[in-house]
Computed example of a mutant assay.
Amino acid sequence: MLSKNKIKLIRSLETKKGREKAGLFVAEGPKVVNDLLHEGFVAETILDDLDDIKKVSFLQHPQPILGVFRMSKEDEKHSNEYSSIFSKHIEGQLVLALDGVQDPGNLGTIIRIADWFGIEDIFCSQETADCWNPKVVQATMGSIARVRLHYLNLNELIDHLPADYPIYATLLDGNNIYEQELSHHGIIVMGNEGNGITTQLRARINRKLLIPNYPPERATAESLNVAIATSIVCAEFRRR
């Protein structure tokens, strides 16, 4: 039986402040919990009694298992030095950068997309939703266990990269993605749901892409959902 203090602690993990204070996050459902355990995340608490789970679950329909995990894998060390970040997580790889993606569902879906296409690292601006938000964790369907997220200043990160390192983004003034040469490494930048990529970061993009609508002359939606656009772009990069 859960104590009142344990219930209070787990419920506090719904907020970013509570998660940062405790260094913990919640995952619900067999798939997500098992993936986290398999990838080396440390569980502080595992609940499998449905009556207990109902007291602390953040889901409308609670799952048969709930885990409280430490935010980072026990053996994982992070460095804020940009040269170290480049050599360990960017050089020779295809990675994503998210500039203010705020909807938890979108972020979770993008993490799942990255996992599907073998992208292991996502770099996020400080304005991007917290990846340990319960809604994000659930939307990843376990992919949060295999994709590393780094929160930092994207402008500074790009400024520390080698000259002319490929920085891609989908923009309305970009070139048709299906007609452009795409490298097997580089950073793909995706912007905020409503405002797109910030002016400062846009100035650092050196490979502008466009996902064309069809047919070109037809009146259509103003834009694509950021997660859908991410999926299209990643699929085209991996197809080459």
Rank of each mutant, 00 (worst) to 15 (best):
H61F: 15
I65N: 13
L66Y: 14
L66F: 14
G67S: 11
G67W: 15
V68D: 10
F69C: 04
M71S: 12
M71K: 15
M71I: 14
S72Q: 12
D75G: 12
E76N: 07
K77C: 10
K77R: 11
H78A: 09
H78N: 11
S79L: 05
N80K: 11
E81Y: 07
S84P: 06
E91G: 11
G92V: 08
L94Q: 05
V95H: 05
V95D: 04
L98P: 00
V101C: 03
V101A: 02
P104M: 00
I110L: 00
I110A: 00
I113Q: 06
D115Q: 05
D115T: 04
W116I: 06
F117Q: 04
F117T: 06
F117H: 08
G118E: 09
E120P: 00
I122D: 01
F123Q: 01
C124F: 02
Q126W: 06
E127T: 03
E127G: 05
N133K: 09
V136Y: 07
V137A: 02
Q138I: 01
T140I: 09
T140Y: 00
T140E: 03
T140D: 03
M141H: 07
S143V: 09
I144Y: 02
I144V: 06
I144A: 00
A145P: 04
A145C: 03
L149P: 06
L149R: 05
Y151V: 11
N155Y: 14
E156W: 09
L157S: 04
I158L: 06
I158E: 02
H160T: 08
A163K: 14
D164C: 09
D164F: 11
D164N: 15
Y165D: 15
Y165A: 15
P166C: 15
P166H: 14
Y168W: 05
Y168H: 14
G174L: 05
G174N: 07
N175H: 13
N176M: 04
N176C: 03
I177C: 12
E181Q: 00
L182T: 08
S183Y: 11
S183N: 10
H184Q: 10
H184P: 07
I187V: 15
V189T: 04
V189I: 08
G196L: 15
I197R: 12
